[in-house]
C-alpha cells in the first residue's frame, strides 16, 4: 500500500479560477469525510481540473516559476500514512505550500486522542495554512487559497 501511495498517481491537479499562479495538488491520502467538500468545490467550479497532457508545456517554464504548487491534504492522517505524505510532498517542485484542510489535518480532529492518528499533518510536513472545520465549507477552501496566494505574493515565494 505504501508503494502505491508513494507514487504520484493519487495526486490530482486543479487550477483555481481567479488565482492563475496557484496550482492545487489534491492528495487523496487518508481519504475521509472532508473529501466530500472537494467534490462540492469542484462541482461549483471553485476548482477546475487541470488538463493532464501538455499542462506544463502550455504554461511555459517562466510562468511555471511563479506558480506555487499547493498540496491540499484532507482527511485523517494515520501514522502509517505519514511516510507516503512526506514522499508526495518531496515530489513537489518549489515554490510549494501545504494546506491543512479540516480538523483532522490540523490536530487529529475527533481522533486527537487516537494512538493511530497523527496529531496534525504538520507532524510530517511543513504547513503554510490551516483551514478549520469538520469538514470546512467549500468557501473556506477558496478563502484559504486566497490567503495563501496573498502571502506567497508578498513573500515572493513559499517554502
Amino acid at each position: 500500500m505504501g508503494t502505491i501511495l508513494g507514487t504520484m498517481a493519487l495526486i490530482r491537479r486543479y487550477r483555481v479560477p481567479g488565482m492563475p499562479h496557484l496550482r492545487a495538488h489534491v492528495a487523496d491520502l487518508g481519504l475521509a469525510c472532508c473529501a466530500v467538500e472537494f467534490v462540492a468545490a469542484v462541482s461549483r467550479g471553485l476548482l477546475v481540473p487541470e488538463p493532464t497532457e501538455d499542462a506544463s508545456a502550455a504554461v511555459g517554464p517562466e510562468a511555471d516559476q511563479q506558480t506555487v504548487d499547493v498540496l491540499i491534504v484532507s482527511g485523517t492522517l494515520t501514522h502509517a500514512l505519514e511516510p507516503a505524505l512526506l514522499r508526495v510532498w518531496e515530489g513537489l517542485t518549489q515554490p510549494r505550500a501545504a494546506l491543512a484542510f479540516g480538523a483532522c489535518t490540523i490536530s487529529g480532529g475527533p481522533y486527537w486522542d487516537s494512538y493511530a492518528v497523527a496529531p496534525g499533518i504538520d507532524h510530517a510536513i511543513p504547513v503554510t495554512r490551516y483551514v478549520p472545520g469538520c469538514p470546512p465549507r467549500p468557501e473556506a477552501l477558496i478563502e484559504a487559497l486566497a490567503g495563501l496566494a496573498e502571502s506567497s505574493v508578498t513573500a515572493g515565494k513559499a517554502s
Binding site: I106, S107, G120, D122, T128, R129, Y130, V131, P132, G133, R137, E139, A140, E143, A144, G147, S151
Partner: peptide, 8 residues
Amino acid sequence: LQPSASAK
C-alpha cells in the same frame, strides 16, 4: 465563515 490561519 471561521477564517483559516497560518499558525495553529
